[in-house]
Nucleic acid binder design. Structure first.
Lengths: 160, 160
DNA sequence: ATAAATTTTTAGGTTTACCTAAATAATAAT
DNA sequence: ATTATTATTTAGGTAAACCTAAAAATTTAT
């Protein structure tokens, strides 16, 4: 797997923290498929940098700083995932890609994507174009609606 | 900067190759802002793995395999950039983000995005929704067109 | 054609994110 | 309460992508 970022670790600790009580090296090691010994090192580093409270053998909790990062990362993740799913990408793939993109994408881009998801979700009746896109994706044809007439008009992508 | 992938190197060599005649350690070192000595190592590695033809001191050229990777990466890059620009992200940011996303995105996702860009580009008259989105991005309001009537109807995002 | 300047390579670091194996601490079972 | 089991940490690797400084090759200037 790809090299993990601080955001990855913190986000994961956040998720685990909201399930179980305490987060231990073993949980994290399993989730990230790395060695528990490596998680100890990661805990030390995250602790030094103020993202978690860590004392030997006791399991860790996020600090305020850590929680802030975790929440913003998770929000980015959800937005990206929703965004990809709006375009028709399946849930699992959307999740995988969101997980990678969330760490690298520019905040300006993120803002646009967030607004886009809002736009689609808030104005459901203004999104016939999405059905058109999906139809185009499947068939290569563009569905043109004649307004005031429920019949559909198929226009091949070739003839435009 | 982020750790560079083989794709980064190969794509860059491709771009340089299409400008100058030969690609030298120095060009690459400058472009990637790393030490020429490191580029020698990279050349050795890329050569071993069959992406470039490399002989000491002579500059390098892409092999068929290398060119294939380069072209597909560049295509991904252009698609991603166009895609982001369609959503209204500025050229420079779109370029930066495309450069990062191109290396990590799933091929299924890439396919969707490609189709999406095609969809928008081929059916320009079916993309009023994009103007609506941009208006929404700027103002938080949704522009509803009354068909058969050129007047616009503003619907605030609140009241939906 | 030789000296000077430049480019490229070599050799030997450093850092970072992992690893394994063994030691130590904590927990569960009798 | 000891013992056995499990979890965690320590100590000491490895590999990869960088680095610097110095050596070697190439190019340019005279």
């Amino acid at each position: 797997m790809r090299k993990k970022t601080i955001e990855d670790y913190v986000e994961l600790i956040f998720i685990l923290q909201n399930k179980d009580e305490k987060v231990h090296t073993n949980n994290v090691a399993n989730a990230l498929d790395i060695n528990p010994a490596s998680v100890t090192e990661i805990f030390q580093k995250l602790s030094e940098e103020g993202y978690i409270d860590y004392k030997k053998y006791t399991g860790v909790t996020l600090t305020h700083k850590g929680k802030k990062i975790a929440i913003s990362t998770k929000k980015k993740h959800d937005t990206l995932k929703n965004f990809l799913m709006i375009l028709g990408i399946n849930k699992k793939t959307a999740d995988i890609d969101a997980c990678k993109i969330e760490h690298i994408v520019n905040s300006e881009t993120m803002e646009r994507l967030t607004k886009f998801v809002e736009f689609v979700q808030q104005f459901k009746d203004g999104t016939i174009w999405l059905d058109h896109f999906k139809h185009f994706y499947d068939t290569g044809e563009y569905v043109k609606r004649n307004h005031g007439n429920s019949k559909k008009d198929l226009v091949s992508s070739k003839q435009k």
